[in-house]
């Protein structure tokens, strides 16, 4: 017997969105298959790598572990939602400028996790940066440049805001 489905309505990257999902489907699959937002990646599928990081009401979560039905009524932001008409987000630009991208598979998750970190802590120490991305695995092991990029993004964001 097929799984029951449920209609959900939420805000996706600033726009109203609605779809019907099997109740056991995860949010990542829903975003990729129903909305063709493939920036968040399917990698480990069990919350161990965070390549699927998205923001739900501003909080970073593993898209692979959250039920899609729990998106109902929430504000969802994916990597596709960071770029604006003004251009790339300061974090995206910082990852480019600091050569923080190698194969690129972890990048969307790293950037979304950085967005979460900086929203709560605009001036993170190196230790705080490392703790924040502890759940994000870079299989190329390019962590040094990623940490540099996050620190630079923090410095640039702070400059813009103040």
């Amino acid at each position: 017997m097929a799984s029951p489905t449920r209609k959900i309505t939420f805000v996706l990257n600033g726009r109203a969105a609605s779809t019907s999902v099997p109740v056991h489907m995860n949010a990542l699959t829903m975003l990729r298959d129903h909305f063709e937002l493939t920036g968040a990646k399917i990698a480990c599928g069990e919350g161990q790598c965070a390549a699927c990081t998205i923001l739900v009401d501003g909080d970073s979560i593993n898209g692979c572990l959250m039920l899609a039905v729990n998106c109902d009524g929430c504000e969802i932001t994916t990597i596709e939602g960071l770029e604006s008409v003004a251009g790339l987000d300061v974090i995206q630009q910082s990852f480019i400028d600091n050569w923080a991208v190698q194969c690129g598979f972890c990048t969307a998750g790293m950037i979304m996790q950085t967005r979460y970190l900086l929203s709560r802590n605009p001036h993170p120490s190196e230790a705080e940066i490392k703790y924040a991305i502890e759940g994000n695995v870079c299989r190329c092991t390019g962590y040094h440049k990623i940490i540099d990029a996050i620190a630079a993004a923090a410095a640039n964001s702070a400059g813009n805001a103040e």
């Binding site: 970073s60 996790q113 979460y116 759940g135 994000n136």
Partner: peptide
């Protein structure tokens, strides 16, 4: 415990 993302869920 776990990662930020898991602790948020």
């Amino acid at each position: 415990m776990a990662s930020t993302q898991v602790r948020n869920l």
